[in-house]
Each structure stands twice: as C-alpha cells, then as structure tokens.
Amino acid sequence: MQNNILICGVGGQGIVLTSKLIAASAMAQDIPVMSAETIGMAQKGGSVFSFLRLGDGLYCPMFPEKTADLLIAFEPAEAVRMLPYLKDGGKVIVNTHPIMPVTAALKGSSYNGSEMLEYLAKKVDDLKTIDGEAACREVGSPRALNMVMLGQAVKTGVLPFGIDAVEEVMKKTVKPQFVEMNVKALRLEI
C-alpha cells in the first residue's frame, strides 16, 4: 500500500509544517515515509510544494505526474500548476483565497483566482473547496490555515490514519500556547 500526497502553495503558508505532521502521524503507525520539498526561496513568495510518500517499497521521495492520490492546495493557481501530478480519480482540496504575485501587480493584472477555481471544477471530479479566510476567521487566527487544510485532508480518507493521530503528534510539535487554536482548526466542520 502506497500513498502519494502533494501539498502546494506559496512560501509562508505553513506547508512545511503540514507535511511534517503528516509524516510524523504516519511514523507513529510504523508506516515508512519519504518527502521532498522546496527549500530556500520559500520565504520569498515563490511557489512551494511538498511531495510526500507513505508506504513500503519506496525508492525516492518524488513521484511522477499522474500518480498523486491527494493534492492539498493552499492557493488556487498553485493547485492548477500542480494538477498534472494528480492521478485519474485523485482528490483535490483547495483553499479558494488567492495570493497575488508581485509580477501580477506590476503588470496591472487583477488575478483573483476565480479562473483557476473554474478550471479545477471542470477537471477534477473529487474537488473540495475551502474558504480559507472564512475558516481562519472562525478559528480566530490568520495562521490557522495549514491546520484547517490538514483537518480537511484527513477527512478525505486517503491518509492511513485519523484525526486523533494527527492531533496527538501536533500537540508534541507546536508550542503549547497554539495547541488549542490548532485543535479547533483541525476539527473545524466545513
């Protein structure tokens, strides 16, 4: 049994921590894990991704196009950018709130993500859209997005563990003062 998961978004959205928590949750069930992610430019507004693989018989942390079981996208255009990696019948979770790159502002373009969401709706059968901004407001922190997305990812049933397993490793990973907010975000009903 192998799972290929792709998490994508823009630097600063908390993608690396999301990836770490999935990996730690898998390890807690004795499932082998490999991952690879963009590093370095992450704080500078670039596209960020994390490849995650769970299961036996893995050689490398990356996987080719059309093999991801689940795409967790923190930004609409980044979801479209990485969509070629999704296998036929794979699942996509996408945050609908767009992040405008500097180049778009300079060219006077008003990218707002709607075109991307329309494209996703057309191409993906199993698509779940999350209004990340509204979810963060409900949780009460603009930094809750990654836990909201992770909670929804667990709900897809693709990952070989449940929300309790994630909550347990999260509590060991984040600072105590953020535990309550993160639990709320993980378990948010959307």
Binding site: K44, S47, E65, V80, R81, L83, P101, Y111
Partner: peptide, 19 residues
Amino acid sequence: AEEKAEDVPPLPVRPPVLC
C-alpha cells in the same frame, strides 16, 4: 503518450522577490 492539457488558464508566475 502524455496528454497535455491545453486549456490551462495562464498561471501567475512567482519569481523569488525581495520580501
């Protein structure tokens, strides 16, 4: 043969920039 999706909307480029 790899089928390339042709109707992809133009994606915003995100070159690294000063923070």
